[in-house]
Design a protein around this nucleic acid. Structure first.
Lengths: 165, 165
DNA sequence: GCGTCTGGATTGACGTGTCAATTCCTTGCC
DNA sequence: GGCAAGGAATTGACACGTCAATCCAGACGC
């Protein structure tokens, strides 16, 4: 008997699982991002913003509401909205009813871009993630993910509508 | 009976698993990066480079060998080495025996930084990932990851030594 | 009215990543 | 010798993220 189970750093086998996990997730992220980019000229950040706006009433959200919805820091969102506004995907105007509020409004061209990107993107998610896993593997991912989310204090299950990326 | 299993885009439940998976992996990455940064002033990129150099014979690697070892594109590595060199973590010198080869050499200060960062980082991996999962969940992750790696044509299992990040 | 506090949003600096040139040396062909 | 081909590494331009200011308009106390 060794003290293996009380050590404070991972064993080699554990490290192997960790490294494979994080490398794989990163590879998935980057493959999907590259595909989305080449197929529709959108980054995954663009996609998240466009999705949220598409589903919002009047295709409009307060900047702060948008940040909360997609879980971004404010400054990140500001920078990103600036870039998207330059490309004509959305526009910003200060909203009357709230003190420092800014309304972010989806443009027609932004809505088009999202429509064009959405289906191919979801197809890619299915091909590279869903179809790679059988039912039991998918269930295993769900279980492990839930445990990790708890450890990280991330909200679990039942969040807003979807579809999603 | 519906045609659910032949549709080309994911179902809502599948999308939920996907979104949780990718969000969780991203959260893990960013927590660990923040911890590593604040505890030892290193980014995860720095860490990968320092780890590879630490284990190399003579604490030295050809730039191209280093790129292959950690799986980075050359230009990414060049930019990163430039920044690390400015900080004194390593130095570069053109190596005599190979035509355009550049030797990347770990400095004492770089070795110190890696030693200082390594244990806390591994501890963090254990806390946030390993300890969040029981044996069966960990096994589930390993199985699902292997399936995903196959789909993505990533090398599986049995790669170089380790420890690792 | 005046100062201060607060919270929403933006900005600037800088590290990081990717893509498309570009540089530089070596090798091989004539 | 002269020159195209090719591989190793770098560079520049630009998108993306984070952190630490900053800006600015109301709210509150006096």
């Amino acid at each position: 008997m060794s003290d293996e189970r009380h050590r404070s750093t991972p064993t080699r086998a554990e490290l192997r699982v960790w490294r494979d996990y994080i490398e794989t997730a990163e590879a998935l992220r980057s493959r999907l991002a590259a595909r989305l980019q080449s197929e529709s000229g959108l980054s995954t950040g663009d996609y998240q913003v466009l999705l949220a706006l598409s589903e919002a009433a009047g295709r409009t959200l307060r900047s702060s509401a948008l940040a909360a919805l997609i879980g971004w820091e404010r400054s990140r969102l500001s920078h990103h909205l600036g870039r998207m506004e330059r490309r004509g995907l959305l526009r910003r105007e200060s909203c009357a009813d709230e003190p420092h509020g800014v309304d972010v409004i989806l443009t027609e061209s932004g809505a088009d871009a999202f429509r064009a990107g959405s289906v191919p993107h979801l197809r890619a998610v299915k091909e590279l993630f869903i179809d790679a896993l059988d039912d039991s593997a998918l269930a295993g991912v769900a279980v492990a993910t839930a445990a990790l989310r708890e450890r990280l204090d991330l909200p679990s299950g039942a969040r807003p509508p979807l579809p999603e990326a």
